[in-house]
Each structure stands twice: as structure tokens, then as C-alpha cells.
């Protein structure tokens, strides 16, 4: 795909990150298309992600809502926008307290809670991310992401027992 060949490949290194750092806030206006495209992208044809009548009358929710796998890709986008492409996700854990519906404005906020090095020498940042709609938490997410130690390091080269997510 050559049209995007000038995208920024700069990446954060672990030395540039410390506990307490804030990630930039990111907001997004959700539409029915957002929800349905997310379901399509994840091959999820369950009706609560595209059929408003089903969502309301069968699930008891107020509309169709973002599915779980696509929500994880929203978190990936938020985190790797910050880290740059050398940031390699190790683990992601989230708890959904509510759903994201069309006409919601999603707001992602995040903080670095820890920077550490494992016994293989891989450097990691732990992030706490909050996804809210109108100041109400929808999902709390914890991400563990490997960052390059310095400009010569690249977590993506780690394999087998050198990768301990």
C-alpha cells in the first residue's frame, strides 16, 4: 500500500516514559456506521451489533453497541498512536461496565502506571486506560506494552522464550 508510505514511524523508547505520564486524550463520535463497520471488520454477524430492534427488544439495551473485539482494536489504536509502531502489545485486559452506542462520544484517557524490565531484558510499560461517555466510565482497560529500550532495540524481534507477555 504505497499511498501511506510517508506515515510516521517514530516510536517512543522506554527511556522516554515514566510512571505518571499521561497519554494524550482521544475523542471520537460514534455512529451506527462505526458499530456496524466494527462488527463487519471482526466478522461478527450477531444481530445486537447491527439490528436495533433485536438489541432493544431481545438484549434489553438501548441500541446496537460496539462488539468486544472491535473495542479491543480501538484500545490498540489509542495505545499505538502514543507508542509508535515499535510498541508491541503483550497483554490487554478490560472490563466493560456499559456499552458504547451510536451518538455516544467516546473519550479515551490513559496513564503510565509502571515501567519495568523483565528477566529477558525486555522493557515494558503498563498503562491504565479509561473509556468514558459523558463522564461515565464504559470500560477500564489495562495494557502491558513492550517498548524499545533505545533506538537500536525492537521488541518485535523477540521470539519464543525471549517474549514473556
Amino acid at each position: 500500500m504505497s499511498a501511506a508510505a510517508n506515515l510516521d514511524t517514530t516510536s517512543l523508547t522506554a527511556a522516554q516514559v515514566k510512571a505518571g505520564d499521561a497519554l494524550p486524550d482521544f475523542g471520537y463520535d460514534v455512529t451506527a456506521t462505526t458499530v456496524i463497520l466494527g462488527a463487519l471488520a471482526t466478522r461478527d454477524c450477531r444481530p445486537m451489533h447491527h439490528d436495533r430492534d433485536f438489541a432493544i427488544h431481545r438484549n434489553g439495551t438501548r441500541d446496537i453497541f460496539l462488539n468486544t473485539p472491535n473495542q479491543s482494536t480501538w484500545f490498540e489504536r489509542y495505545v499505538t498512536d502514543w507508542s509508535g509502531p515499535k510498541g508491541r502489545l503483550g497483554k490487554m485486559k478490560f472490563r466493560m461496565k456499559d456499552s458504547v452506542y451510536p451518538n455516544d462520544h467516546m473519550l479515551f484517557r490513559g496513564n503510565v502506571t509502571e515501567v519495568d524490565t523483565d528477566d529477558t531484558g525486555c522493557t515494558w510499560a503498563t498503562l491504565e486506560i479509561n473509556l468514558s461517555v459523558e463522564d461515565k466510565t464504559v470500560t477500564d482497560c489495562t495494557v502491558r506494552i513492550a517498548l524499545p529500550k533505545d533506538d537500536n532495540d525492537n521488541p518485535w524481534t523477540r521470539k519464543g522464550d525471549q517474549w514473556k507477555p
Partner: peptide, 11 residues
């Protein structure tokens, strides 16, 4: 679907 421009996937 999430407007992710990470160059790993486009470049």
C-alpha cells in the same frame, strides 16, 4: 474501522 494509521499495516 478504528481509523488506525499505524504504518505497520499500511506501509
Amino acid at each position: 474501522s478504528v481509523e488506525m494509521g499505524n504504518p505497520l499495516y499500511w506501509d
